[in-house]
Nucleic acid binder design. Structure first.
Lengths: 337, 337
DNA sequence: ATGAAAGCGCTAACAT
DNA sequence: ATGTTAGCGCTTTCAT
């Protein structure tokens, strides 16, 4: 069964195919009766417009690329959920690509997007990314680009993030105000902006409240539940004294909690724990884990809205880019009450 | 800055643009020196192939549509994660669409996919969907279609699912073997195949082990943590006697556990609990919750592979469709040990 | 209000 | 091994 095109409809109604095209697109110069006739015929013949052909001719694909490190992480899938919902309401389709945290796959994704003639790209960079050339190419093409969460700070690009510095600060401040003096911070070994900021917030909170900075209490590694457990084992075996742990993200905090329980160290009496990200499980486990909420739902919707504004503006890189920064929210739960 | 096309490259090298096209696509009839020259020039001029134009001409978009109810549910985002990874390895891009559990948005998504000339669709249907016409249109177009998890059983379409009947059966059987006699089952009120199957598994297990079926113990509603709590409140206030709860999914089970704890009903001594889906938190909470694992990672990769096979085959609806059924795995944890 | 004609950038059948 | 030509299905300018 051959597909119906506007030409078929035109022949059937004995009018020109440009009239059909106009009628279908509600062009103002087309009379109502003609429009009605065309639309009915299109319906009857099971016409499906060919978006590819229309994109080629008009130069507008009504598609944007969304590039995320990975989708099997609650935070990213929530954000993509939000982006898709908003962009879809506004008539855009989403091309999805995962970098799997690899720099070269990220590059490949951008290339695919460019080849696919997307009208813009929303991205959160991989852990490996420290150069900005791949994204610079997007800018050079004058294609709109927006970052969320994991950004490249040296690129003049609109972005939606949370104030990670503040997140680190308030988490640490909270622990200090609970009387904690030896606060361990578990961070990441890679040079990733948002993680550095959380560390900076931790350090500044200590300084601000006149607590000493102890290098023994700052641990870097690859975050995971097991790494959290490992850290506690190491601290205990090295006989390093501590009364609180602030982790980079929640899975590590979970590992910390599990290992503390195993050692019969009381939470929060002996050691308080605060995580980061507000993963589902943090409110459900025992003890429930204090954490910093990143408003992942809001972030997806916000970056999509910011992006739509950008698309309308036209000259994307003439003005200083809009940087939307969410305030992080500290959720105090049983692990640090 | 105007974009570079094969015509520009051709002009620059003083050859025809079809030679350029062939060289770029590694056509066998093109000499090595020419290929080299063309590729170098393309690189130098910053050439980006226009996938849209190529798709229009060749009829192959190298894109498939992935339609899921929603991405803010771990199960679906894991599966999409798997699908994207595999399809990407095979040179396909993913157009993403969420039905948000609504039938009409699902229809709109399918239409968008058809307009976008995707080469096929992988889908899991919305809770509202009980008619198959929207998907039947895809089949009529002879476009490959595959379902995962939530399928339309009356459609002759390849699919990847778990054996939900068996999942319901083994969960119930496990409780029976632990000596439980009054097993509550919390299900859903909508007519969704996989949920019906889990119920059937529950019923058959009771029958098989000679236990009576008590309508009071079968509850239907909209699953959620709060609904789980509600169910326990209702059972207690109605003074209905029970010694185990098997829920349709894990959030409901979590609610059940929370409410039981609030009533100081001992888990698993007084009441055992088994959920379904193996959400992250089930292994982390106290007591950890027994659940049925659906192998969501495997499901994504498997449906992608099945789909690739389908694409190669050509005549998609001539043979009886391949139905891949994963065995569910019961994970026994503290809530029912 | 409608029609005629050009062309978006590419692939592929048909030449040579 | 390379060039010529047609055309995928649509939008859009220019004409009437």
């Amino acid at each position: 069964m051959k597909k119906t095109t506007i030409l078929d409809i035109a022949r059937e109604l004995d009018i020109s195919f440009s009239t059909v095209s106009r009628a279908l697109n509600d062009h103002k110069a087309i009379s109502e009766p003609t429009k009605k006739a065309v639309k009915e015929m299109a319906e009857r013949m099971g016409y499906q417009p060919n978006k590819i052909a229309s994109s080629l001719r008009s130069g507008k694909s009504k598609t944007i690329g969304v590039l995320v490190p990975r989708l099997d992480v609650t935070f990213f899938s929530s954000v993509v959920h939000g982006i898709e919902a908003v962009m879809n309401e506004n008539g855009y389709s989403i091309l999805l690509y995962q970098s799997q945290e690899h720099f070269d796959r990220e590059k490949k994704g951008i290339e695919t997007f460019l080849n696919s003639q997307v009208e813009g790209i929303i991205a959160s960079i991989s852990l490996e990314t420290d150069k900005s050339d791949a994204f610079a190419a997007v800018i050079k093409r004058n294609m709109p680009l927006a970052f969320f969460d994991r950004i490249l700070p040296d690129l003049e690009v609109p972005s939606v993030t949370i104030d990670d510095y503040r997140g680190g600060f308030i988490a640490t401040e909270h622990l200090i105000k609970k009387g904690r003096k030896k606060i361990v911070h578990i961070n990441q070994y890679r040079n990733v902006n948002i993680f550095n900021e959380r560390l900076r917030g931790y350090l500044d909170a200590l300084k601000h409240y006149g607590l000493p900075i102890d290098e023994d209490l700052i641990i870097k590694g690859d975050f995971s539940l097991d790494f959290g457990r490992q850290c506690i084992c190491d601290l205990v075996s090295k006989k390093i004294d501590f009364d609180a742990v602030f982790t980079l993200e929640d899975f590590t905090a979970m590992g910390v909690v599990q290992q503390l329980k195993e050692y019969s160290i009381k939470i929060p009496d002996d050691v308080s724990v605060v995580g980061f990200a507000n993963e589902d499980f943090t409110s459900l486990v025992t003890p429930s884990i204090s954490t910093v909420d990143q408003n992942s739902m809001g972030m997806g919707r916000e970056v999509a809205h910011l992006f739509l504004k950008l698309l309308k503006k036209g000259d994307y890189y003439k003005h200083t880019p809009e940087k939307f920064v969410f305030e992080p929210t500290l959720l105090v739960r049983e692990s640090s009450i």
